[in-house]
């Protein structure tokens, strides 16, 4: 299971998680895409030393891993748990990461940028995540020479990250807005005010289980606090809309919603073959049922975890073997029956 998901965060009936990441690069070193092995090793060593050998309290809390020493299945599991980004797996011989014991903090080395600091928290906790992320950044800043320009700010490989290098995102569960078709209007409005909406696993991924990832699109010209404040403000409004939609669904179509929720639970508890997509969509309604107090005998943590453990790589770990897509669907049904 994903450790970082443990514990209840604020507004966790609708907000699954908050994530803050900073992109940083070292001076006078080619960016990751063009670096040679020697440069890659220097970056890894410097970042590793800065965190592990520092006098900070943080240092005892971290473990270091080279991507090439992790087998293919476990690499994908880390991505499915949102602990590392898919981009970190593109150059396995050059990439590494540091991870805190509670799995909330990851420092990735030689992804698109030399350093990517990520902090993940359950529920809506953007400020708390930013605080911690900034502290790790300070610790690295004391020991490394960051590439920084007076005018452009922190230098990044891609111009879309330059300036603060900050991407703050919130994973929202919005089943009622989807059911009422109100979601289209919201997504349209959100994209017009400089925020982006993506699927479960970031850029270019499908929307599953009514989960939407909303993040800031621009990184230059605003302070980190302003970026986070704006995102939080919009997210709070979406939360209100989702709650209002749930209430109006329940008031106007109570028995239909109850039926949908219990049918979802029924299929999950009885199916013998289930795709990842179907499982996610049904789990979404069960989750809403728990949040609305309709389902009382299922723990929300179980549902949250199934949303991650039913993903393809996690299923294979559960089965302890490589599985074809059809075999996975059978194992997935088995796992869900066991847990629900």
């Amino acid at each position: 299971m994903a450790k970082w998901l443990k514990g209840k965060g604020p507004d966790s009936d609708i907000v699954i998680s908050s994530r803050v990441r900073l992109a940083r690069n070292l001076e006078n070193t080619s960016f990751s895409q063009r670096m040679n092995d020697e440069e890659a090793n220097v970056v890894k060593q410097q970042v590793k030393d800065a965190i592990l050998n520092g006098n900070s309290v943080i240092s005892k809390d971290f473990n270091y891993f080279n991507i090439e020493n992790i087998d293919l299945l476990n690499r994908r599991i880390l991505v499915e748990k949102h602990i590392i980004s898919p981009g970190l797996l593109e150059k396995p011989d050059k990439s590494a990461f540091l991870i805190s014991k509670d799995e909330k903090v990851t420092v990735m080395m030689n992804e698109e940028d030399h350093v990517r600091i990520q902090v993940l928290n359950p529920g809506l906790s953007l400020e708390e995540s930013w605080d911690l992320c900034s502290k790790i950044d300070d610790l690295l800043d004391e020991n490394l020479k960051y590439a920084f320009d007076d005018k452009f700010g922190y230098i990044t490989a891609c111009p879309t990250n330059v300036g603060t290098g900050l991407r703050a995102s919130v994973m929202l569960h919005l089943p009622a807005l989807v059911l009422t078709n109100y979601i289209n209007k919201i997504l349209q409005a959100v994209s017009q005010i400089g925020l982006t909406v993506r699927g479960l696993y970031g850029e270019g991924t499908d929307v599953m289980g009514n989960l939407f990832q909303i993040s800031n699109q621009t990184t230059l010209g605003k302070t980190e606090e302003e970026i986070i404040e704006k995102l939080k403000n919009i997210v709070m409004q979406i939360i209100d809309k989702e709650r209002a939609s749930r209430e109006s669904l329940f008031n106007n179509q109570g028995i239909r919603i109850e039926d949908k929720i219990y049918r979802s639970l029924g299929i999950l508890r009885n199916s013998r073959i289930i795709t990842s997509k179907e499982a996610m969509d049904l789990l979404s309604f069960v989750r809403m049922g728990i949040d609305m107090g309709i389902i009382k005998d299922v723990n929300i943590d179980v549902v949250n975890n199934l949303m991650i453990t039913t993903q393809p790589a996690n299923i294979q770990k559960y089965a302890k073997s490589e599985l074809s897509s059809q075999e996975r669907d059978v194992k997935r049904a088995e796992l869900i029956r066991e847990k629900l």
């Binding site: 900034s134 920084f148 452009f152 700010g153 603060t164």
Partner: peptide, 11 residues
């Protein structure tokens, strides 16, 4: 892209 060309955040 950003609507700005000057960094104002952390240093």
């Amino acid at each position: 892209i950003h609507g700005h060309d000057n960094h104002t955040g952390k240093v």
